[in-house]
């Protein structure tokens, strides 16, 4: 993928999106093939090299994966506490900024994950992913479990952050609205491989039966017209 773009991975459930994503972020070993990260071959790395690469990646897990015993602010501070020698006051200051960047209100800072609503939970997870100012932001199903307003707001936020922080983003999603609005390019997974990588416009015009089934169903048409109407 290219620097600074938003690439979406799509495919039916079980087509291997999450596995591919896990291999990309060095959490799972590929059984075959290779992974290249930031121009380096990323298979069979020793632990310290792998960790160095991982630091340049911010990950937002599908269910947030916030640490339950820590407040939102403490959650965001974890990567900085572990990976830098910055004084605590500075880390708190930076963590608070990330919280605001992720669109959370300031008073969410000292709440525990269980006290946050679904949308706020996702935003806190996003803020933690952004904690180290990663070069690559990985989002696993960012809109899942959110109402349409929340999902739209999250899409806006991702676009906003992508623009202002110069991020490269990889995301998996089922959400066709998100695909149309956010992604620069889309990689379509099926039959255990990437069938095509193209822009949404090109993909939705594809005559491959698997891709067509995904992008030309009734929901897809609705999502597309909606985007066009929005201009």
């Amino acid at each position: 993928m290219n620097r600074g773009e938003i690439l979406a991975l799509v495919g039916a459930s079980g087509s291997g999106k999450s596995v591919l994503l896990r291999e990309m972020i060095l959490l799972a070993r590929p059984t075959a093939g290779q992974v290249r990260l930031f121009g380096e071959d990323a298979v069979d790395l020793d632990e310290s090299t792998a960790n160095r690469l991982r630091r340049r990646i911010g990950i937002m897990f599908q269910h947030g994966a916030l640490f339950n015993s820590l407040t939102a602010l403490e959650n965001i501070a974890v990567p900085m506490k572990e990976q830098t020698d910055l004084p605590d006051a500075v880390i708190r200051d930076i963590a608070m900024l990330k919280l605001l960047l992720a669109g959370l209100p300031a008073d969410a800072a000292h709440k525990y994950p269980r006290q946050l609503s679904g949308g706020m939970h996702k935003r806190a997870a996003l803020a933690r992913a952004l904690a180290m100012d990663p070069d690559l932001l990985v989002l696993d199903e960012p809109g899942t479990g959110l109402d349409p307003i929340g999902a739209d707001a999250l899409d806006d936020l991702i676009l906003d952050l992508h623009r202002s922080l110069d991020l490269t983003v990889v995301m998996t999603t089922h959400d066709l609205d998100t695909l149309w609005r956010v992604s620069d390019r889309v990689a379509f997974l099926a039959e255990r491989r990437i069938l095509a990588t193209a822009t949404m416009g090109e993909l939705s015009a594809s005559d491959d039966p698997a891709i067509a089934a995904f992008f030309q169903g009734p929901r897809a048409r609705a999502a597309r017209s909606l985007t066009w109407n929005r201009g």
């Binding site: 830098t84 910055l86 004084p87 500075v90 930076i94 180290m132 100012d133």
Partner: peptide, 11 residues
Amino acid sequence: WTTAALDGISA
């Protein structure tokens, strides 16, 4: 001026 290289600058 990046997160990993900021150590001590605040002081």
